[in-house]
C-alpha cells in the first residue's frame, strides 16, 4: 500500500504526548488537544473535524471499554511526519480486546445499555487513512490513526 510505504520512510518533524485520566469529561479535552496540535499544518475545517471525531471515538472506547469500572491512564502521542502525515497513537493499559476483528465490525458493541451505536471503529476508518489496533487481553490496547493533511498551496 502506497501510504504505508510513505509512513515507513518519513521523518518525525514534531511530536507531543499527553496523558490523562479515563474520565468521560476528558473526552473533549483529548480531541481538542490533538486538534490544537495538528492545527499547525493548516488543515481544512473538514480535516480537523475528521481528526477530532476519530480521536473522540478512540478515547471513548478507552473510557467505556478499556477501563470499564475503573479510572486509568490514557496516553495520546501525536507525531507530525514529513509529507503532511499525522500519526496519532491512543494507548490505554486497560482490559484489552479479545477479538479485534469482531470489535471492529460495524454495529457490534458490548455496551448497548449505554446506547453505544457500535460505530466507533467504523468512524475512525472512515475519517482516517489508516487505522491499526494492537491489543493484549489484560494489558491494554493501542490504536494508531494516520491521516494525511492536504498541503495548502501558497502557504510556505
Amino acid at each position: 500500500m502506497f501510504l504505508k510505504e510513505v509512513v515507513n520512510s518519513v521523518k518525525v518533524l514534531n511530536e507531543m504526548t499527553v496523558t490523562f485520566e479515563s474520565r468521560s469529561s476528558n473526552e473533549s479535552f483529548a480531541r481538542s488537544a490533538v486538534a490544537a496540535f495538528v492545527a499547525q499544518l493548516d488543515p481544512t475545517i473538514g480535516e480537523l473535524n475528521d481528526i477530532r471525531t476519530a480521536v473522540s471515538e478512540a478515547v471513548t472506547n478507552c473510557v467505556v471499554h478499556a477501563y470499564k469500572d475503573q479510572i486509568g491512564k490514557i496516553s495520546i502521542n501525536v507525531r507530525i511526519l514529513s509529507d503532511n502525515i499525522v500519526c496519532i497513537r491512543i494507548r490505554d493499559k486497560g482490559c484489552g480486546i479479545e477479538d479485534i476483528d469482531k470489535a471492529m465490525e460495524p454495529l457490534f458493541t458490548t455496551a448497548p445499555e449505554e446506547e453505544r451505536a457500535g460505530l466507533g471503529f467504523a468512524v475512525m476508518q472512515s475519517f482516517c487513512d489508516i487505522v491499526k489496533v494492537r491489543s493484549n487481553v489484560g494489558s491494554g490496547t493501542t490504536v494508531t490513526l494516520n491521516k494525511r493533511i492536504s498541503p495548502r498551496v501558497g502557504n510556505g
Binding site: S56, E114, E115, A117
Partner: peptide, 13 residues
C-alpha cells in the same frame, strides 16, 4: 458544533 457516534446512539435510542 461537534458530534461523534454517541450522537448516533442518542438518535437510535
Amino acid at each position: 458544533n461537534f458530534m461523534d457516534s454517541s450522537g448516533i446512539g442518542l438518535i437510535m435510542g
